[in-house]
Amino acid sequence: MSESATNPMRDAIESAISENPVILFMKGTPEAPACGFSARTVAILESLDQPFAAVNILPDPAIRQELSAVSGWPTIPQLFVDGELVGGCDIVVEMHSSGELQQLLGLEGAEAAVTEARAAEPAPLAIENLL
């Protein structure tokens, strides 16, 4: 562990990953993403109303270097859930389409509720229309 003792950046990244249930390392900020892949990943999390911590890797090249050393993943963005690397933009997009992301985030119930609400919506309208 002598390596980590002399590597405060790596320590900071590892604590951030373990302390935040959902954390996204990205280029730019959720408000102003600096890359299309980061933007797409943020948009998916926001569409699910999923709160997440975000780290902008651009201000210091050492963040990206240490992050990739920790995760073994070379590209940005990188999404972690419960301390585990989920993947980059491609994987997040695929898992969102398949519903696996919602499941991983524990949003299954919420999703079902939304679907039910949507399905239920036309019914009262139809009744009104009949009246």
Binding site: F37, G72, W73, P74, T75, I76, L85, V86, G87, G88, C89, D90, I91, E94, M95
Partner: peptide, 27 residues
């Protein structure tokens, strides 16, 4: 796993990713 699948491809290119190869989307 998806992670392992993508890593197989990332490993082919190593540090060229994000550098010489700016962005690689994988399916």
């Amino acid at each position: 796993s998806r992670i392992a699948q993508h890593k197989l491809i990332y490993d082919v290119f190593g540090t060229e990713l994000g550098d010489r190869i700016h962005a690689l989307s994988i399916k």
